[in-house]
Every structure is written in structure tokens, then in C-alpha cells.
Amino acid sequence: MSKVLYPSEIEFSQLYQNNDLLLVIFYASWSAPCQKLAPHIDKLAQEHPEATVMKIDIDAYPTLAAKFKAETIPSMFVVKKGIITRRRLGFVSYSTLEEILKD
């Protein structure tokens, strides 16, 4: 069973470069859309162990958020072997999360 990771900046860099399939979610704890998305992210991590799922708090790591231009939250990025292949902004359904992960 996989779980959602909350890495430091150093851990983020290592995970970013060393995973075949990565879902990065930029979020803020005070954001209603992020709070609504959280259970879907947890479920996705459990049901799709082939993907590494990590959440980055934009308030704790503003430089990472800026690097990814994560100005809207939640901002989700699918990364395959160090290359961003998909970007999605705002709240999405669970089925949409699965879809963007598989594309």
C-alpha cells in the first residue's frame, strides 16, 4: 500500500529525478479545494502503487511552488522519468485524477 509523501526540498529533488511515475500536488492547508481533493489523493496513492504521490505545501516551500509556476492551488503535475507530462489546475474528481495519471 502506498501513501502520500510530504518531502523536504532535498527529498523532493531526489524523488523527482528517481521515479518512473510521479504525481506532484502543490497545495495549501487553508484552501477549500485542496481540502476537498485530499481524500481523492489519499485513495489514489493507495490504489495506484505504481505511482509515487507527493504533496508540497506552497506556504512551507514557496521556492518549489514558484519553480513549477504553481500559482493556482491545487496544481497537479504528472512527472515521468524527470519530465513533466501533464499539468492540471484546481479541484478534479477521482476519475479525472486516475485519467491524468494514466495518460
Results as ranks from 00 to 15, higher is better:
residue 2 S to L: 08
residue 3 K to G: 11
residue 5 L to W: 04
residue 8 S to F: 02
residue 9 E to K: 12
residue 10 I to E: 15
residue 10 I to Y: 12
residue 14 Q to G: 08
residue 14 Q to R: 15
residue 15 L to M: 10
residue 16 Y to A: 03
residue 16 Y to F: 15
residue 19 N to A: 04
residue 19 N to T: 12
residue 20 D to E: 13
residue 20 D to G: 09
residue 21 L to C: 10
residue 23 L to H: 03
residue 24 V to T: 08
residue 24 V to L: 10
residue 24 V to F: 11
residue 25 I to S: 05
residue 26 F to I: 02
residue 27 Y to H: 11
residue 28 A to N: 06
residue 28 A to G: 07
residue 28 A to M: 06
residue 29 S to D: 13
residue 32 A to P: 14
residue 35 Q to C: 08
residue 36 K to D: 09
residue 36 K to N: 12
residue 36 K to V: 07
residue 37 L to E: 01
residue 38 A to C: 04
residue 39 P to M: 05
residue 40 H to C: 09
residue 40 H to Y: 15
residue 42 D to S: 14
residue 42 D to M: 11
residue 42 D to T: 13
residue 45 A to H: 00
residue 46 Q to M: 11
residue 47 E to I: 09
residue 48 H to K: 15
residue 49 P to A: 09
residue 50 E to H: 04
residue 50 E to P: 01
residue 52 T to A: 07
residue 52 T to Y: 02
residue 53 V to R: 00
residue 53 V to N: 02
residue 54 M to C: 11
residue 54 M to I: 14
residue 54 M to A: 09
residue 54 M to F: 12
residue 55 K to H: 06
residue 55 K to Y: 07
residue 55 K to Q: 12
residue 55 K to V: 01
residue 56 I to Q: 00
residue 57 D to V: 04
residue 57 D to M: 07
residue 58 I to N: 00
residue 58 I to K: 00
residue 58 I to V: 15
residue 61 Y to H: 11
residue 61 Y to T: 07
residue 62 P to C: 08
residue 64 L to E: 02
residue 64 L to G: 01
residue 65 A to K: 03
residue 65 A to C: 12
residue 67 K to G: 07
residue 67 K to A: 11
residue 68 F to R: 00
residue 69 K to T: 14
residue 69 K to D: 14
residue 69 K to E: 15
residue 70 A to H: 00
residue 70 A to I: 03
residue 73 I to H: 01
residue 74 P to Q: 06
residue 74 P to M: 07
residue 74 P to I: 07
residue 75 S to R: 05
residue 77 F to S: 00
residue 79 V to C: 02
residue 79 V to G: 01
residue 81 K to Q: 14
residue 83 I to E: 06
residue 83 I to M: 06
residue 83 I to R: 10
residue 83 I to G: 01
residue 84 I to A: 09
residue 84 I to N: 06
residue 85 T to R: 04
residue 85 T to D: 00
residue 86 R to K: 15
residue 87 R to Q: 13
residue 88 R to E: 13
residue 88 R to D: 05
residue 88 R to H: 12
residue 88 R to K: 14
residue 89 L to T: 03
residue 92 V to T: 12
residue 93 S to E: 11
residue 94 Y to R: 04
residue 94 Y to W: 12
residue 95 S to T: 13
residue 95 S to N: 13
residue 96 T to Q: 11
residue 97 L to D: 00
residue 97 L to W: 00
residue 99 E to N: 14
residue 99 E to K: 15
residue 100 I to N: 03
residue 101 L to I: 09
residue 101 L to D: 05
residue 103 D to L: 13
residue 103 D to H: 12
